[in-house]
Design a protein around this nucleic acid. Structure first.
Lengths: 343, 343
DNA sequence: GACAAGTATGGTTACGTTCCCACACGTGGC
DNA sequence: GCCACGTGTGGGAACGTAACCATACTTGTC
């Protein structure tokens, strides 16, 4: 099928029309499937298009129709499996609906996020899915009439569709689990951002403590910058200074760093310290002991975000909704009662 | 900055020109930076563009200039960290050169690969980077005058730029290492494709045996289909039937599956069986014992591929080159002499 | 003081597609 | 025999931009 071809200039509708001896208008109707065309003529036009290797010029279509079939997606870090799964889910759903994904990574940097968003506007994308870094990007898109869905975290100062995890519950379950085991000094490793995802996880941490009637010691809370090079050093210092009996790491990267520090220190899991991570990435089930984690439905997060975006594109006047997906605490071997009961 | 705005129709060069009281031609020259414009006029035009929230219509530009600044990238599986790293490297290099990446996953399916490639042609992408599934896609693009670089594996039946790993050497080093430890029954876990990457790894496996003067027992070679659901069952059967003392898994997924089977069987690493993987993904260094692997410069692979593509776009008549990046054997705890020497 | 070369601006066209409109034909209803 | 309506076709404009061309003014050179 498809004889493709043409090494000279690309084939246009006009070429196809000429080949069959009809007008460009008719050829366009046949190829796009809109409007009246006699059955046999349509047949011959499609055959001619195939024979000549005609491929519609997407730019011309977008220009004329004032919208494209390309949805922009911005994630923080292409290398992180969390965002990989997210992207996979988004792409799958978009493709089924006849859209394509333009995926861009922004390294969690505001400037790059804005640059990406500008490109999407330039391309007249019908919609954009963001794991937002700042609140400006969303506002910019909305003001320009482009559908937006925020996923994983919410940043916008305006009402906008979003698909996020119930972070409060995830953290509450995880920390509640540790407190239930008897821990009284649970460290929290978080990211030093204003992201709602992190805020929710910290809130869940505090909530669990409140429920158990335990006062939170702020010295146990460590918030790290993004690509902070000294992360492991600071985690080590936390161990020295605050002497936690358990660590709750609020994302997969932090869990990995914490795990590494514990190993370097020769601390045994879970005998000396317990560890609970966030996000059920592959390694957590493979190390020994396997790590207790809050599992998030990563791919689903992406699928729902894409589905929501498609709805908004179809009906721009819907009132924005926020979908809250539920995490699941997976208890494995890295959490156990503390070394010896305190107080 | 940027006051963006306009909820009605998007701002065009004509709007900017009118605002300043000049012609669209002049405005276009000022905004695109090509051609003569008086300094003060340029200043005022840029200010007006910013004030009105002008964003150039990429479709119109592409249509007029007959080429876009968007490079298509097709990878097999967005969820696999290998492809994630590859994409990260590609994107980084492209962005620095003022291009954007349109990333598409094809699940290793020929049909989806062709669909993606068609989209790129429709968008008049100046170039495409493929981890090819079939040989048709590359040929199709070349015939249509689009620059192509194959990365990770080569499929094309025509001369085309490529960036690949020295798979033969990687496998030879890995298997040579095992044979040097005294193993005589080294199983190979491979993918059942016609990919050059797999072919090279099998060749390296045979080469190592030949160098050591050992005859290869074909019963030790297991080639699995892509998303083969029975993969772990078949690996287990291989253990039973061929009784290998070491396993060489030729990609990170197979290594993970092999590792899982070994654990389920209660086989100790490396006492009962040795394991060497391909591709140094995070978990291999974290499990105990850590896994000996052939490390590939994943991100570099992407960077070089992008750089090569940019060269070809700049000069379409270069003779195609193939860059061969070198792997590195990282010996860790999962490889040791076999239980007892076999003849 | 003529001429070339550089600077600066605007009018017009073309990129490839879709869509609106005008027109033409056939069929059925009154 | 007229009209309404569904079917089918082609002409032409428009989407927003950049390139080409014509034009005009300035400057420097012999």
């Amino acid at each position: 099928m498809t004889a493709a071809g043409e090494q000279g200039r690309p084939v246009t509708v006009a070429d196809v029309a000429r080949e069959v001896g009809t007008s460009p208008s008719t050829a366009s109707r046949a190829l796009s499937g809109r409007g009246y065309v006699a059955a046999d003529l349509r047949e011959r036009l499609l055959a001619a298009a195939d024979r000549l290797g005609y491929v519609a010029n997407a730019s011309a279509q977008t220009l004329k129709q004032r919208t494209s079939r390309i949805v922009g997606v911005v994630v923080s870090d292409l290398g992180n499996p969390f965002y990989g799964g997210l992207a996979a889910g988004i792409e799958q759903t978009l493709r089924e609906a006849g859209y394509r994904m333009l995926l861009v990574g922004d390294n969690s940097e505001y400037v790059e996020e804005m640059a990406a968003v500008r490109t999407f506007l330039a391309m007249r994308a019908p919609g954009v899915i963001l794991t937002p870094v700042g609140q400006e990007a969303t506002g910019f898109l909305i003001r320009n009439g482009i559908a937006v869905v925020e996923v994983d975290r919410q940043m916008a100062d305006v009402a906008v569709d979003a698909v996020v995890l119930d972070n409060v519950r995830g953290a509450r379950d995880a920390v509640g689990h540790l407190l239930g085991l008897g821990h009284r000094r649970v460290a929290l490793l978080g990211v030093d951002t204003n992201w709602t995802s992190d805020a929710g996880r910290i809130e869940g941490y505090r909530f669990a403590h409140a429920t158990a009637g335990i006062t939170v010691n702020d010295g146990l809370i460590l918030r790290l910058g993004f690509h902070e090079p000294a992360a492991e050093k600071r985690i080590a210092r936390l161990l020295d200074e605050a002497a936690p009996t358990a660590i709750f790491a609020t994302n997969n990267l932090l869990a990995e760093q914490a795990w590494r520090v514990l190993r370097e220190r020769g601390l045994r899991l879970p005998r000396d310290v317990s560890l609970v991570g966030f996000d059920d990435v592959a390694w957590t089930a493979m190390v020994s002991p396997p790590i207790t984690v809050v599992a998030q439905p990563t791919t689903d997060l992406g699928r729902r975000a894409a589905a929501l975006l498609l709805q908004r594109i179809a009906d721009p006047d819907r009132t924005p909704t926020v979908e809250l997906l539920q995490p699941r605490l997976v208890v494995r071997g890295s959490s156990a009662p503390p070394p010896r009961p305190r107080r």
